[in-house]
Computed example of a mutant assay.
Amino acid sequence: MIRDIEAADLPALLALNNSEAAAVNELTLAELTAQVALALSARMTADGSGFLVAFGAETPIQGPNHAWFVGRGEGFAYIDRIVVALQARGQGVARSLYEDLAARGLTLACEVNLDPPNPAGQAFHARLGFQPVGEAVDPRNGKRVQYLMRG
């Protein structure tokens, strides 16, 4: 079951997020709270094993990757972060969170690291039908990313 993130969930989700900081960047509780408040969609699994935060074209810019998509059109859901607990990986949690968001009828948009390489992330998104639409270097951390979309 997937449901909306509530205020009481935030401390546990922050711990989950920060356990994966190398992949999704560490946040403070105030930053996560602000992201959830601004999100087009902020959803989690009922058991807390995963969560997803997505922004729309109308959301105030939330970094250079979101800005890249905003500059290219409307009607998308930019997946800013998806985090799945280590023990829940390979059980369809990420796929379920993506499909929950896709049920809104919006084009899904995200980025995957090219440098440092993330072959598992690239393969996952390819399996879900995402297509490359661009590349950039994130000025905040120097990571080279590939932008992906799925209609």
Rank of each mutant, 00 (worst) to 15 (best):
I2K: 06
D4Q: 13
P11H: 07
P11G: 04
A12C: 06
A15Q: 14
L16K: 03
L16V: 11
S19H: 13
E20Y: 12
A21Q: 15
A22L: 14
A22S: 14
A23G: 06
A23P: 00
V24K: 08
V24S: 07
V24H: 08
N25W: 07
N25F: 12
E26V: 13
L27M: 13
L29T: 07
L32P: 02
T33P: 01
A34P: 00
Q35E: 15
Q35A: 13
A39L: 04
L40N: 00
S41M: 14
A46P: 02
A46N: 07
S49R: 09
L52H: 04
L52Y: 06
V53T: 11
A54D: 06
F55E: 06
G56A: 10
G56I: 08
E58S: 14
I61M: 10
I61F: 00
Q62L: 12
Q62G: 02
Q62V: 12
P64W: 05
A67Y: 05
F69H: 15
F69K: 02
V70Y: 04
V70L: 06
G71W: 08
R72C: 09
R72V: 08
R72H: 11
E74L: 02
F76H: 10
A77R: 11
I79Q: 03
R81A: 08
R81K: 15
I82V: 15
V83T: 14
V83E: 02
V83Q: 02
A85G: 14
Q87I: 00
A88P: 02
R89L: 04
G90P: 01
Q91R: 15
Q91C: 11
G92C: 08
G92A: 10
V93A: 01
A94L: 05
A94Q: 01
A94M: 07
R95Q: 15
S96L: 08
L97K: 00
Y98T: 01
Y98E: 00
A103P: 03
A103L: 06
R104D: 14
L106R: 11
L106E: 10
L106N: 01
T107A: 15
L108K: 06
L108P: 02
L108F: 09
A109N: 01
C110R: 03
V112F: 05
N113R: 10
L114D: 08
P116C: 09
P116I: 05
P117L: 06
P117C: 05
N118S: 10
P119E: 04
A120P: 00
A120D: 13
A123F: 04
H125S: 04
G129C: 11
G129P: 11
F130G: 09
V133M: 10
G134E: 11
E135G: 01
D138C: 15
R140A: 15
N141G: 10
R144L: 09
R144S: 12
V145M: 10
V145Q: 05
R150M: 09
